[in-house]
Design a protein around this nucleic acid. Structure first.
Lengths: 129, 129
DNA sequence: AAAAATACTTGGCATTACATAGTATTTTTT
DNA sequence: AAAAAATACTATGTAATGCCAAGTATTTTT
């Protein structure tokens, strides 16, 4: 019995987070395209849908944070739309990382005073035999 | 010159995150009320507005994750609406923490391979003299 | 030639953060 | 005692994102 509100919350938690992940990948790989990004995200443990990623890429492109160009693989195959960070996008990445890490630090501060109660919550997660 | 898209992204990143923070605080403090929660959040570094927190509490209450009751302080003063985790809410907390930590771990995996490029990004954050 | 795989597009829904404005009660000030 | 300020919560509307679902186009496989 999974509370449907929990799954909705999970979706909400990914807002903004996925964009940061994509920018980090592009910063590392210099460039990439949709399905490859999906693969990289999945390998890192993030199960992202096409209907999530492609609009995300279009938004970042419209915001001017990404540049894109179509390329056909040299060995043939379906043409792909490659994305890479623009100068503007590169400038955004550092503040975004700072914001993300500030949130993480705030959360750590919140749980710091409640290690006992949190370990209680985590233990309750496992089903008793 | 701050990109307005950056501030919008910051708001998006807090979606879901703030709910988790509030639940963690209530798990630790047993119970609390609006303005006190704002104070605790602010002390941890999160600048949350009334117009964000109160609707959030109402939503969690409607979802059945929180119980609430009005109390007037024994030494007089304005009556306050106190919230505490319900049994359902307590059951949500552990899976939510697991999801949050899974996201954090995925992100760490993504940046792991790009320590060099990320430190470049962080250095670019400081303005040269 | 048909089917499958690759790769991207588009439209619509539900949800949340935030701004803004408003209500009610208590305390402080004059 | 009346006015002002502080405390505390409510209500409305907007913008933005994740996700589902269906669709298009090209290439490869059968």
């Amino acid at each position: 019995m999974i509370d449907p509100a929990f799954e909705k919350w999970q979706s909400q938690l990914r807002k903004g987070f996925l964009e940061l992940c994509v920018l980090v990948i592009l910063e590392e790989r210099r460039q990439s395209y949709g399905l490859e990004l999906l693969h990289v995200l999945e390998q890192s443990g993030l199960d992202v849908r096409e209907g999530t990623l492609y609009p995300l890429l279009n938004r970042l492109h419209k915001s001017g944070w990404l540049e894109s160009n179509w390329e056909t693989p040299v060995d043939g195959g379906h043409p792909r739309r490659f994305y890479k960070l623009s100068a503007v996008g590169k400038n955004q990445l550092a503040p975004m990382l700072a914001t993300y890490q500030a949130n993480t630090a705030s959360f750590e501060r919140l749980v710091q005073g409640s290690l006992a109660s949190l370990s209680r919550a985590l233990e309750a997660q496992e089903t008793p035999p």
